[in-house]
């Protein structure tokens, strides 16, 4: 049995005038420790799918099972990282990273020092008492990662977490996140519209077609790219050909659309 099983997800958004089907017939399986990406043009329901998997949104039909049990935010199964850091501006960095532990009543000396240790490990020292606005965009997104990891989630959701950063910071953070996830053996699902990022970071890439969103194709990234860091993967000789393949598929999706 797989670590995460997503089965026959359909989701329809209702408004007074329309019933828009965002997702149709989505089924996928993710193994423990795997890193998968969901790639697709904007408006294909990527974020909706992520919200459903993390049980923030109840699908119209279908089930999501984590280790054969229905998934729930209450049990800290899920860590969710958004496009921007969304650190609370009135809380210090320390208060921000301990927020998840505090809300789930797991805050004690041990978890606290673990979270602060993680902050150090990620390369941020002496910022505990500072406010988020005193840090740069890349530093803030790293703090957000620590906040997400502090509750030790089994499954990590990354909703375009690098899209608001400048290119250089983005490349550095890709490496950092990839390293940390490998080190802790975390399972992660990344949503992105950046083909290169999907290839460089993942083990598998799901390509979603728009309106309604369904899984159009699955790509398995070759072993030699998986082993190395995202930055090196971008420069590997196997990278351009996969990029071209996915690029063409995306193009064909768009032309089918027209």
């Amino acid at each position: 049995m797989s670590f995460l099983t997503v089965q026959d997800i359909h989701h329809t958004y209702f408004t007074k005038d329309t019933a828009a089907t965002a997702l149709s017939n989505i089924s996928l399986k993710v193994e423990e420790g795997e890193f998968v990406s969901i790639l697709g043009p904007s408006g294909c329901g990527k974020t909706t799918l992520l919200s459903i998997i993390s049980s923030l949104l109840k699908p119209t039909t279908g089930t999501v099972l984590l280790e054969n049990k229905p998934i729930s935010t209450a049990k800290n199964d899920i860590g969710y990282m958004l496009q921007q850091d969304y650190l609370f501006p009135w809380k210090t960095i320390e208060e921000n990273i301990l927020l998840g532990l505090k809300l789930s009543k797991q805050l004690n000396e041990k978890t606290k020092s673990a979270a602060l240790g993680l902050l150090k490990q990620i390369g941020l020292t002496g910022v505990e008492r500072q406010l988020p606005k005193q840090l740069s965009g890349g530093m803030r997104q790293r703090v957000a990662l620590v906040r997400t990891l502090a509750t030790e989630p089994k499954l990590l959701m990354l909703d375009e977490p690098f899209s608001a950063l400048d290119y250089q910071t983005k490349l550095k953070l890709e490496d950092l996140v990839s390293n940390i996830l490998t080190e802790f053996g975390k399972t992660a699902i990344l949503v992105t519209h950046d083909i290169g990022e999907a290839i460089a970071m993942s083990d598998r890439v799901f390509l979603l077609s728009p309106s309604p969103g369904r899984i159009y194709k699955t790509f398995t990234i070759p072993e030699e790219l998986r082993k190395i860091s995202p930055f090196k993967a971008r420069n590997h000789e196997a990278y351009p050909s996969i990029f071209q393949t996915i690029w063409k598929e995306l193009e064909s999706l768009e032309s089918a659309e027209e």
Binding site: N76, Y80, G100, S104, T151
Partner: peptide, 20 residues
């Protein structure tokens, strides 16, 4: 999105109100 962050940590409605 601030509320979303809190909800991913399993926050109750009261906690969302108090923290965000």
């Amino acid at each position: 999105n601030y509320v979303k962050v809190l909800r991913t940590f399993g926050a109750s409605r009261f906690q969302c109100f108090k923290e965000a």
